[in-house]
Write a protein that binds this DNA or RNA. Structure first.
Length: 152
DNA sequence: GCCAACGTTGGC
DNA sequence: GCCAACGTTGGC
């Protein structure tokens, strides 16, 4: 089993939205590296740190699990979708997505500031300079540390 | 709203 | 294949 961090802008889709919907497709990823993680490496049951970016409060808001493995992002086929991409035809889809399922909302957010201050998390990809990846792998120990931080 | 750091596109 | 121009991400 693997661990992941997935970024979402809470104004668009927050941990509360996921809680309400129970499951959600992770549509709209239009970056090859992030796509490759979803398409090739994410397996059902993997755990996801749900991260709120571009918000008043930035950080890990809770947990989700992968409930459906990679399949074509059909929003790319929908001309009315903001994720429409004519370069991803049905016959040869370019973009893929997984489905995630709500697991829990942390009693309190583990903020980006706290993550930056925590020495044992200094190697997290999240806080490497210039990293804009919206989906990235997280180690087991990083995952466990963040869960622990959410508890106090 | 600003802007640094990327990633993508397209002309050559 | 190079690289300038452009678009996006995301913290502040």
């Amino acid at each position: 089993m693997k661990y992941w961090l997935m970024k979402s802008e809470p104004d668009v889709f927050s941990i509360d939205d996921l809680k309400k919907n129970k499951t959600s497709p992770w549509e709209g990823v239009r970056n090859y590296q992030a796509r490759n993680f979803m398409r090739d490496d994410m397996k059902k049951g993997d755990i996801v740190l749900f991260y709120h970016s571009n918000a008043k409060e930035i950080g890990v808001a809770g947990l989700a699990t992968v409930s459906k493995e990679s399949h074509p992002d059909h929003f790319a086929w929908d001309k009315k979708s903001k994720y429409y991409d004519p370069k991803s035809p049905k016959e040869n889809p370019r973009w893929f997505m997984v489905e995630v399922k709500f697991k829990e909302k942390f009693p309190r957010m583990v903020t980006l500031g706290e993550i930056k201050e925590e020495k044992s998390l200094k190697d997290m990809r999240l806080i490497q300079k210039g990293n804009r990846l919206s989906i990235m792998p997280v180690t087991k120990s990083e995952y466990e540390k963040i869960v622990k931080m959410s508890e106090k």
